[in-house]
């Protein structure tokens, strides 16, 4: 295991150990631990998965298998704000693609990518369940609806430099 991330994040790994100790004897501990670990580190990098494998004495492939199976887990760090653009049917016919393209252009990243300054992650998502507001995007927990591409710059600027 590479030691640099362990040293740079001593406190986080101490917290991770506390989480593992709390859950390891419960039923199905891995999902719970992975959720908490992702909250803690923002993602599940190799060093974190190795640490959990070692602590629980289970193969790394078990952990990696779960982490890659569920879409809520991510191996790459995400930005401070995750922008989800709804590509459900209603939003799609109301112009979600143009909204997504505009976001892409404005932030300079493709869907699935994270900006270099780790401020934004852009994702095309399934139906967000707000079809009445189509087309819809979510930025973390904030919802924006009935969008046209020209709205995008103003919205993105609100989060820049926050």
């Amino acid at each position: 295991m590479s030691t640099s991330i362990l040293q740079d994040n001593k406190e986080k790994f101490a917290e991770l150990q506390r989480i593992i100790d709390e859950y390891k004897d419960k039923e199905g501990p891995l999902m719970l631990i992975l959720h908490k670990a992702q909250e803690l580190f923002g993602c599940l990098p190799v060093e974190v998965q190795e640490y959990i494998a070692e602590s629980l004495d289970i193969p790394l492939t078990d952990i990696y298998g779960v982490a890659t199976f569920y879409s809520q887990f991510t191996l790459q760090p995400k930005g401070k704000y995750t922008i989800g653009v709804c590509m459900g049917t209603a939003c799609y016919v109301k112009g979600a693609q143009a909204v997504l393209d505009e976001l892409s252009k404005e932030i300079g990243i493709k869907p699935g990518e994270t900006s270099e300054d780790f401020v934004f992650t852009l994702e095309a998502t399934r139906c967000l369940g707000a079809c009445g507001l189509a087309p819809v995007i979510m930025i973390n927990d904030d919802v924006y609806g009935r969008l046209v591409p020209s709205d995008i710059k103003g919205i993105v600027d609100k989060y820049r430099g926050r």
Binding site: V46, P59, I63, Y64
Partner: peptide, 18 residues
């Protein structure tokens, strides 16, 4: 456990981690 089932659905594959 050098190899395991990873990813999901159509992308499922048996491979080492990472």
């Amino acid at each position: 456990g050098a190899i395991g089932a990873t990813e999901r659905g159509f992308r499922s594959i048996v491979e080492p981690a990472f």
